[in-house]
Design a protein around this nucleic acid. Sequence first.
DNA 1: GTCCTGTCTGACCGATCAGTCAAGTTACGG
DNA 2: CCGTAACTTGACTGATCGGTCAGACAGGAC
Lengths: 199, 199
Amino acid sequence: MARPSVEAERREQILSAACEVVSEIGFKSLRVADVAKRAGTSTGTVHYYFDTKTELMRAAFEWNFARSLDRRRPLLDEHPDPRERLRAFVESYLPVDDVTVRAWHVWAELWVEALHDPDLQEMNEQVYGEWRRIVAGILRDGQDSGLFREEDPVLAANALIGMIDGLALQVLLRSRSMTVDRMRAVCDRTLRNLDVATV
Amino acid sequence: MARPSVEAERREQILSAACEVVSEIGFKSLRVADVAKRAGTSTGTVHYYFDTKTELMRAAFEWNFARSLDRRRPLLDEHPDPRERLRAFVESYLPVDDVTVRAWHVWAELWVEALHDPDLQEMNEQVYGEWRRIVAGILRDGQDSGLFREEDPVLAANALIGMIDGLALQVLLRSRSMTVDRMRAVCDRTLRNLDVATV
DNA sequence: GTCCTGTCTGACCGATCAGTCAAGTTACGG
DNA sequence: CCGTAACTTGACTGATCGGTCAGACAGGAC
C-alpha cells in the first residue's frame, strides 16, 4: 500500500449520493453523471468504484436497507412493553421526515426494478424477511404477555407490514386522501385490533 | 371522410401492446419500437397516434385502469351478501392469472413513475379514490345489515386496500414467503376481523 | 378513371449517456 | 526525492433510441 485506502469513505459518499438522486428523480432518469456531481466527484471516479451502473444501484439498494435497519434497531430496545415497542416501530415507518421519505422512495424504486430482476428479488426476500421476523417477534412477545390476541403472529405481521407498505406508497404519491396523519390513524386502528381488549 | 376511421381500434391495439411490454420488461426498458413490434406495426404508426412516449404511457396507464374496473364491475352485482361481495372483490385482486398479474405490474410501474410526476399523481388520486369508494360502500352496506362491526368504513377500507397493495407487491416479487395462497390467508384473516362475530 | 384524405412505413437524424482511457495527481515507503 | 501504487479526472467513443419526414398506399367520393 502506497497510500491509506479511502475506498470505504468514497464508496459511502457515492452510495449516499446515489440514494439521494434516485429519491429525487427516480432510477429511470438517474445518470451516472448526476451521482458523480452530487457526490462532488467525476464519472470516472464513480466507475473506479463501481464497474457498471447496475452494480452501483445494487450496492445503493443494499446500503439503503442497512441504514434503515440501523436507524430502527435502537428503537426496539427502548420499550419493554411490546405494545409500545410495536407502536414505536410502526411510527418510525411513517414518511414524516426527509430521511424516511428518501428511504421509502429508494425502496419503491427497488421494488419495481426487482419485478424484472431475480437478483434484486432475492435481495428483497432477505430484507423483507428481516422486517417480518422483527414484527412477528414483537407480536409473539405481546401474546406471551397476554397483551395481544392469540393468533398466527406471522399472518398478522404480514398483514401489518403489507398495509404499511401500501399506505406509505399512497402518502408518497401525495394523495389528498392519504396524508401522514390519516396513515397514522389507519395504523392506530389496526394496532388496536391486535390488542386483547378491543374497544 | 374518405375512409372509415380505424383510430379507435388501432389505439386500443397499441395501448394493449404497451401494457404487455411494460408488464414484461418495465417502463424503464420499454422502447417505442418494442411496442410497435408487439402491436404488429411500425414506430411511425405508434407516433401517428401518440405524439410522444410520455403521452403513450399516460394513455396506457389510463387504459389499464379502465380495463381493471370493467373486469370487476359485474362482480359487485353478483353477491347480495356484503360479506360475499367483499370477499369476491378481494379475491379478484389476487395475482393468480396472467391478466391480473399484468394489470398489477402496470400499476406498480405507474406508482413509481408517479413519484416524480404530478400529472400521474392526479391520475392515481382519481383511480384510487374509485377503489376506496367501492370498498367503503360495501363496508357500509355490511354495517347497515349488522354483518360488519361498527367502525369508520373509510378507515377500514384504507387499511384493507393498502394491505392488498403491499401484499400483492410481494407476490409479484416472487417472494417465497408471500405466495398467492399465503396472501389469500392473510386477506381471509383481515376479512374475518371485519365481521361482528369474530371467532 | 382521378382526386383526396386518412393511414402507414422505415430510413434517418440528433441527442443522450454508460463506460473507456490516457494522462494526470497524491501520498506513502525506502 | 524517487519509485510505486492508489486514486482522480474529463474528454471521448460507440451504441441506443425518440421523434421526424418524405413518400407510399388504400379506399371512398365523384
